[in-house]
């Protein structure tokens, strides 16, 4: 059995390794997930280090969004592990996984804003629940700063139903960042947006990534967006990772599916 000193030492060593990018912040290993007889993920393994953005690409229905839901613990895998800062979350009870989730921000595909709350209340929601020692004025200040950062200053009193899809994604992004997470998960951040709004979201993600230096995983089928914001790209097909690498690696790959995917994107 390891002593407390040894455990602390391991934690410090891991933290240092994560800081300098040598240890993965998110590590997914041999992940399997099925719904009934339909296999969605078939042994996926991926890692993301601090400051890195990984784009997960693939056709519709290949389990990209499921992968994100497994990483944040909204669903449990059939087998395999999801390690966040070295801790396996797959068997964790709800209360324990809460502490891990505070270090993660999640942007849902449609924004998933709470429709009974204003824009400001939506962004403040995680703060109100987890930063109770923080004064109300400090919380309000933080929310205003984030709304300004995502280009939504002056819109704080509007309801989610009063704003466009692109704006909802911006607000969702502000809410995902409000607890200053180490890990950012983005589910189709540009889906359903016009090319200009999509480019704005890409720029925003790049800017936030540069400022906050998080480990990010972006699920998308938009190759242009992935090429713009990601350091590495992972291409999924039929529940498996076909290739992981830079955009250039994908271009130079002689795997038939990779070439087909690039040709049709």
């Amino acid at each position: 059995m390891q002593s407390m000193d040894t455990i602390d030492q391991i934690a410090v060593t891991r933290e240092t390794a994560e800081e300098n990018g040598s240890a993965p912040v998110v590590a997914v290993e041999d992940l399997h997930k099925s719904y009934g007889s339909q296999k969605v993920l078939n042994g996926i393994s991926l890692t993301v280090t601090r400051g890195e953005t990984l784009a997960v690409l693939g056709r519709s229905g290949t389990g990209k969004s499921v992968l994100l839901r497994l990483i944040i613990g909204l669903e449990k895998p059939d087998s395999g592990s999801v390690r966040i800062h070295g801790q396996d979350i797959t068997g964790m009870p709800l209360d324990e996984i809460g502490d891990i989730r505070k270090k993660m921000g999640f942007l849902f595909q449609q924004g998933a804003l709470y429709d009974s709350l204003t824009i400001e209340q939506n962004v403040a929601f995680p703060l109100r629940h987890h930063k109770k020692t923080m004064s109300k004025s400090d919380q309000d200040e933080r929310v205003s700063a984030l709304l300004a950062e995502v280009g939504m200053a002056g819109q704080s009193e509007k309801m989610p139903s009063d704003i466009s899809g692109g704006m909802r994604k911006r607000v969702g992004l502000a809410r995902a960042l409000v607890l200053e997470p180490d890990i950012l998960l983005l589910d189709e951040p540009t889906a359903g947006l016009d090319p200009i709004s999509a480019a704005e979201i890409d720029e925003l993600v790049l800017k936030l990534q540069a400022e906050h230096h998080m480990a990010s995983i972006v699920v998308t089928h938009d190759l242009h967006s992935a090429k713009t914001i990601a350091d590495r790209l992972a291409l999924l097909n039929e529940g498996n990772v076909v290739i992981v690498g830079s955009f250039q690696d994908l271009q130079e790959s002689d795997i038939e599916f990779v070439g087909e995917f690039l040709r049709h994107s």
């Binding site: 839901r69 944040i72 909204l74 709800l94 209360d95 996984i97 809460g98 502490d99 989730r101 505070k102 993660m104 999640f106 849902f108 595909q109 449609q110 998933a112 804003l113 709470y114 429709d115 929601f125 995680p126 629940h129 987890h130 809410r175």
Partner: peptide, 18 residues
């Protein structure tokens, strides 16, 4: 039900709120 199908319940959970 409306919150569930629009992923608001998931968003609450993802915000580490039970």
């Amino acid at each position: 039900a409306s919150m569930k199908v629009t992923e608001q319940v998931d968003a609450i959970e993802a915000s580490a709120v039970n």
